[in-house]
């Protein structure tokens, strides 16, 4: 799958933002007044910034509101609803903290559920696609949730819990790669089932429909850059999990914490790039690629 920069930015940033909102909703850290204001502004910049980046991906951003219509069948539509609800509820909760120094606890919990629910709906957009076997597995939502929880706890300054969540995210990431590598083979879809021409003998793609590329090959059959995938995996894992954990284990300092956040952000973006670049869409089989 083509790793569109807008989609990578969207999923990475909004995952961090909604992860932070989740912890804020649960009352971590227990902030009020100006400090709360700063935390909420950061969370909203990340979450809303991510949502805006995702609209750049649309062919017709001016019609984006129509995406709210089909929540009964479409995960993309459900994502639109949960993100809007999360942002509204958490705004009310945040206003209580900032202006009245009161935590409206039930509202915070509702906001936390909606925030993490937004991450879940985002992950389901990818998970539901049987056409991309690497994404069509239980670990995909687990991956997205573990990243949001870990990144959010890092931003929320939860120095005791964050290392554990970062380690968990790293392990889930490894497992997702491991299972993902054999997903296409296990899916049972190959050129023989794609064409029905399996029986008479060995089949290979002889000629594509046109000599040049098309929308499908550009969007769904992205094979460039996979040769560096192994190296990038190591880099992603070190940046998103290992390095932030080490930085947090050192005696606490704000500079180290900020470095941990930046490292995690870079690692998460790298992991998200691989999530797309390594994903094989079954239509590639028709083109003799994968």
């Amino acid at each position: 799958m083509h790793p569109a920069p807008s989609v990578i930015a969207f999923t990475t940033l909004s995952s961090l933002g909604f992860g932070l909102l989740f912890w804020l909703g649960l009352g971590f850290p227990p902030v009020t007044g100006w400090v709360a204001f700063t935390f909420f502004v950061l969370a909203y910049l990340l979450a809303v910034g991510g949502l805006l980046a995702s609209t750049f991906h649309l062919g017709h951003p001016e019609r984006a509101l129509k995406a709210f219509i089909q929540w009964r069948s479409s995960w993309l539509s459900r994502e639109a609803w949960t993100s809007l609800a999360a942002l509204l509820v958490m705004a009310a909760f945040g206003a209580g903290l900032v202006f009245a120094a009161t935590a409206l606890v039930p509202l915070g919990w509702l906001g936390a559920v909606l925030s993490i629910g937004t991450v879940l709906t985002t992950s389901m957009i990818y998970t539901q696609l049987r056409t991309v076997p690497r994404w069509h597995q239980l670990l995909t939502p687990v991956l997205f949730l573990s990243f949001a929880l870990a990144g959010g706890s890092l931003l929320a300054g939860m120095v005791h819990l964050a290392p554990w969540l970062l380690a968990a995210a790293g392990i889930v990431q490894l497992a997702h790669w491991y299972l993902g590598d054999s997903a296409l083979a296990r899916s049972g879809t190959d050129l023989a089932t794609a064409t029905g021409l399996g029986a008479p003998g060995r089949i290979r793609a002889f000629e594509p429909p046109h000599t040049g590329p098309n929308y499908l090959t550009r969007e769904l059959v992205f094979v460039i850059g996979r040769k560096h995938a192994r190296k990038l995996r190591v880099i992603a894992l070190v940046l998103l999990s290992v390095l932030p954990i080490l930085l947090l284990l050192l005696p606490f300092h704000h500079v180290l914490a900020a470095l941990a956040v930046l490292s995690h952000l870079a690692g998460a973006a790298c992991s998200r790039w691989l999530f797309f670049a390594e994903a094989e869409h079954v239509v590639g089989l028709y083109y003799g690629k994968r």
Partner: peptide
């Protein structure tokens, strides 16, 4: 679109 495949018996 029309693809072409080669089948080797």
């Amino acid at each position: 679109r029309v693809h072409s495949y080669e089948v080797q018996p």
